[in-house]
Nucleic acid binder design. Sequence first.
DNA 1: GTCTATAAAACGATAGAC
DNA 2: GTCTATCGTTTTATAGAC
Lengths: 195, 195
Amino acid sequence: MPIQKITREEIISKCVERFRTHGFHSSTMSDLAEVCGLQKGSFYHYFTSKDEILEEGLKQMSAYFQEHIFAIAYNDHLPPKKRMKSMLQKHTAMMLHKHGGCIVANIATEALHTNPDVKPLLVEVSDNWHAALRYILQSSYTAKAAEIRAWRIIQDIEGAIMLTRLYGKETFIKQALQRSVEYCDGETAESAKRV
Amino acid sequence: MPIQKITREEIISKCVERFRTHGFHSSTMSDLAEVCGLQKGSFYHYFTSKDEILEEGLKQMSAYFQEHIFAIAYNDHLPPKKRMKSMLQKHTAMMLHKHGGCIVANIATEALHTNPDVKPLLVEVSDNWHAALRYILQSSYTAKAAEIRAWRIIQDIEGAIMLTRLYGKETFIKQALQRSVEYCDGETAESAKRV
DNA sequence: GTCTATAAAACGATAGAC
DNA sequence: GTCTATCGTTTTATAGAC
């Protein structure tokens, strides 16, 4: 009786990570199998197609983010500023890992045209990220202001990740992170005008 | 004697546009040929490989941007605010066209790992964009402040393009554009602290 | 559940006629 | 300069042994 080398969940994790760092269309089934320490043929015991790996992968990733990253926002025992810093540091560290960038932005860029079915999954992750940020910011802002500022934090970080990857300098993402944390300080007469 | 259906320059333009809207790895040689109204075989009269098309395409695009978009920044007959608005409107309109996004960001995301040689070309375009923005902002800011704010405009717009594509709403990019134009109004006591 | 072997299709690239 | 035809390779996916 052959031993179980790897669980389905682990396979999915490794594939998503490969998609993030090498791209979806650049990752062949052989590549994915190799990353998991399996032969190409063994892969079809778990999935019927490459597209299914992407879809399952994004579902699992969405759940992971909600449970292990965005959940930090709702821990009311910590002050808002600490939650914001902790959550974003964990999130951006993952994006910077191996210079792979944001999986949501990457898949949206390269696979939305060939795999339009995954769009709701990407939107789901972004929506959950936004809800988490908004929840933290509602301690310091009105509901409307918190919503708008939450989008701007996502936008700021996504732009920073892109520049950080292109120029290989972490300045962009570090400053975006700092700005986001300072957002928790609340409204000033000047900043209100700038929304 | 067969007539010339299309010039090399036109072929390159159509290929770059296809890469931007459908991705590099998702665009086959057949796709590219079809877009140009040619047969696959005819393509190899102009290029030796698909990678060469990408490289030549990015070179031509870089020159086009410098000449037709970034050049607007250096037209000192117009007030800074008008130059900023005119340049960014033209640039973002191209990015939004067919929801294709920014060619630089797209190629950086999906082809930097398979085609690292094109990185200098992507950096060149970004550098030129930054220089154009910085030139406009130097009317209102110190050299150092102008440099930092020019990067933040690029970052803001790249993040906005990503969100606009994912959510299909132009609010993100429109507001980023407005913020960028308002940057030309110059330093205030509050905004200085926020750099 | 994992392997090897192989089928079937897609793709990049070449050859040669016109 | 464009076409048709085709080669060689890569890639997705399947079949069947263990």
